[in-house]
């Protein structure tokens, strides 16, 4: 059963909204990599108004972004949080992601500003660059005046591999439970309440194919802080640095059966 309807609509009208809520209300072009702030976003003046900016997130300002010196992928498309029960056991999380997944979405790549309808909710995809090794979903949701507890976040990115790369591993950390797919294949699952520890969950040995490779994640948070981090490791468990992320490369990604 699918709760999220495949109702991606035109992003044209949504893009300005995304820019406003994620970056700033100043109207200035944001820096692609501002220094991370340590405090929470500014408190809202009205209950449902955007609270921005998210201190550790910025709107992408370049076509591509290389993974950082420790190999972390810092550019993602994130869907606004979906309200869920917030149960974190293996059975509950697996049932949740099957129920809430978007048809054909494990390899499809949304565009910044695309919206989907989930029940009576309308949720928007946002392209973000993180200034840290991790993506702070609490910052993301709080800045949007969205709930941060008992929520499901979908995240997508596309790694444009320069060549076929066998024997690599996707390595992630998440707060809290999460399930991860590479090119449509589930490769990592972490359950129960947990913190986002670097390389907490590591996939079996995989092959990155030449060109775009779609990574999709579902992160479920019950309460408190919520974030994730992701990178690839080589055959010696060392981080692969310099991998290129380009969110428009997903259009040519071929879904696997």
């Amino acid at each position: 059963m699918t709760r999220l309807r495949n109702a991606i609509v035109s992003a044209i009208g949504a893009l300005p909204f995304a820019a406003v809520v994620i970056v700033a209300t100043t109207g200035q072009q944001p820096s692609p990599a501002p220094a991370p702030a340590t405090g929470p976003p500014t408190a809202p003046s009205t209950p449902n108004a955007p609270r921005g900016p998210a201190p550790s997130l910025a709107r992408p300002a370049s076509p591509t972004k290389a993974s950082d010196r420790a190999g972390f992928l810092q550019r993602w498309l994130i869907l606004e949080p979906l309200k869920v029960p917030g149960q974190l056991t293996e059975g509950a999380v697996q049932a949740l992601v099957k129920k809430e997944h978007i048809p054909e979405s494990l390899t499809a790549v949304p565009k910044d500003g695309d919206v989907v309808h989930a029940g009576d909710e309308t949720l928007t995809w946002h392209a973000v660059d993180t200034t840290a090794y991790n993506v702070n979903l609490f910052h993301f949701a709080y800045a949007l005046s969205k709930p941060t507890s008992n929520v499901l976040f979908w995240a997508v990115t596309v790694v444009d591999a320069p060549r076929e790369m066998p024997g690599v591993r996707l390595a992630i950390g998440s707060n809290a439970a999460s399930v991860w797919w590479l090119n449509g294949q589930e490769v990592i699952s972490l359950y129960n309440d947990r913190q986002a520890v670097i390389d907490d969950g590591v996939s079996p040995r995989l092959t990155l194919r030449k060109g775009p490779n779609v990574i999709r994640a579902a992160i479920v948070n019950a309460g408190g802080a919520t974030d994730f981090c992701a990178r690839f490791l080589d055959g010696h468990d060392a981080p692969i640095v310099g991998l290129i992320v380009r969110l428009d490369a997903g259009a040519s990604a071929t879904p696997r059966p």
Partner: peptide, 10 residues
């Protein structure tokens, strides 16, 4: 141990 939650052979 390739990560906190993942054993493998190497």
């Amino acid at each position: 141990a390739v990560g906190s939650s993942t054993p493998t052979l190497a």
